[in-house]
């Protein structure tokens, strides 16, 4: 994937993620409606490629009153990732030359890799995660399971232990998928299924859509860095 394709595809996926989020706010209080109606307009410009670079500037500026409104991110990590993608996109448009544009999109790709690697590392060094206890706690008493019936998963220790190790090993191993385009696509497919499972079990639908928007950057970076290396 070349730079222009990755940049454009990131714009489209991010615009769709922002539209999905913003529409959810249109049934909220009047002050929220105004902020997110404006976000919808700017996201549509980004989606259809109309003055994309200025749409990203507008969306970055608009993120300030939105952060102020909620005194931080509304939806934690998914909002932070959305904003990170947006800032990297904005910088990739206004960077003075191609090298700096590459750095802007490359930084996004790097953070995507770190989002899995660090997340896996902090789990695997925790004995509660290695024993399956932490994931059991998530199901048993955290605020995330979307229904009461899902809490019964906490009473299936073998399943929870297997799922804990599957998540940790996948997250830790994700950087290795960069070695070949096929392994990267396989890794991103597993990652997408992981986010889908989080959306189904914990209602984290925004994470699913916004993380997908960062995937073109890693596909581009893999091609850029590893294309000439033969294994």
């Amino acid at each position: 994937m070349d730079f222009d394709s990755a940049q454009r595809l990131t714009e489209i996926l991010l615009a769709l993620a922002f539209l999905q989020q913003s529409l959810e706010h249109l049934s909220a209080a009047r002050d929220e409606q105004r902020l997110f109606a404006l976000r919808i307009v700017l996201s549509l410009l980004l989606l259809f490629g109309v003055q994309s670079q200025w749409a990203t500037v507008g969306l970055v500026i608009l993120s300030l009153p939105i952060l102020h409104r909620f005194q931080g991110p509304y939806n934690g990590g998914s909002d932070r990732m959305g904003l990170l993608i947006l800032i990297c996109l904005c910088l990739s448009h206004f960077a003075p030359n191609q090298s700096w544009k590459d750095i802007a999109l490359g930084y996004l790709a790097l953070q995507l890799v770190l989002s899995y690697l660090i997340s896996g590392w902090v789990k695997i060094v925790n004995p509660d995660w290695r024993s399956g206890r932490a994931l059991s706690d998530v199901f048993q008493f955290s605020a995330y399971p979307v229904s009461e019936n899902l809490r019964s998963i906490a009473r299936q220790p073998r399943l929870v232990l297997a799922a804990s190790w599957a998540v940790m090993l996948f997250e830790i191993a994700f950087p290795a998928t960069l070695l070949h385009p096929v392994t990267l696509i396989a890794g991103l497919s597993v990652a997408g299924l992981f986010h889908l499972a989080n959306a189904v079990l914990f209602g984290l639908n925004r994470f699913f859509w916004v993380w997908l928007a960062a995937y073109p950057s890693i596909l581009w970076l893999q091609h850029r860095v590893f294309a000439s290396i033969q294994f």
Partner: peptide
């Protein structure tokens, strides 16, 4: 609004420590 700018720091350098520990969970 200046306070909003401080929210940008964890965006540009995220910690990515999802579910590192499972703390007590609040109910309203």
């Amino acid at each position: 609004m200046l306070k909003s700018l401080k929210f940008f720091a964890p965006v540009l350098i995220p910690s990515w420590r999802f579910f590192d520990t499972i703390a007590a969970s609040p109910r309203i």
